[in-house]
Amino acid sequence: MSLPARIVAALIVGFARAVTAVRGEWRGVAPVPEQRIYFANHNSHGDFVLVWTVLPPALRGRTRPVAGADYWLTSKLKSFIGRDVFNAVLIERKPMTRADNPVAQMSAALNDGDSLILFPEGTRNTGPTRLLPFKPGLFHLAKANRQVDIVPVWIENLNRVMPKGALVPIPLICTVAFGAPIRLRPDEGKADFIARAERALLVLAPEKKG
């Protein structure tokens, strides 16, 4: 990573810690440098930053977020943060216009030995439901990479820190919980696997307090 990118990364992590005092809960896996596909709920642009912050520094450099090119390539600053700081795998979200196959792009990153963080809801969830239905990409990725552990990651409270449209974050304590890994079973179909992945993520969510 270049020096400016390192400085910006440290600033981003420091800011995330100051606002959220974020803590990683390693419930189903240990924070060890194994190749993984992390998949998380998506409420805010800061989701990836929070996961990244709780990863040990040794894992951070080898863990790349999967993000929409339509968002991250729209300005110089965003593109610097997306490409140079986070080293994101930028995919085209609109199937009609895309030149590259996103699953092939992600598999290429995995072949290089990197881990991935993806948000299978596909877009930010701003509604009252805890989780939006998953897009099928996770299934295709699991099918192409059966040897890689797929780890559910529940991010709690960040949607309250920075609701959609808010300009200023409110400091609240956030947690990032890592669950037990899943893999695609030999005869498992798309619908079954997606349903199982959604359940594996939802069991990590704390029960809503009254």
């Binding site: 309250r160 808010a166 409110i170 609240l172």
Partner: peptide
Amino acid sequence: SFAALREFLTLTNTVVADHWALAAAVF
């Protein structure tokens, strides 16, 4: 105070409509 406020607000029922009030409280 900042750290204590962050802890206290975490446990409250505040909603999106309170965002400006809370941001003003903190900042």
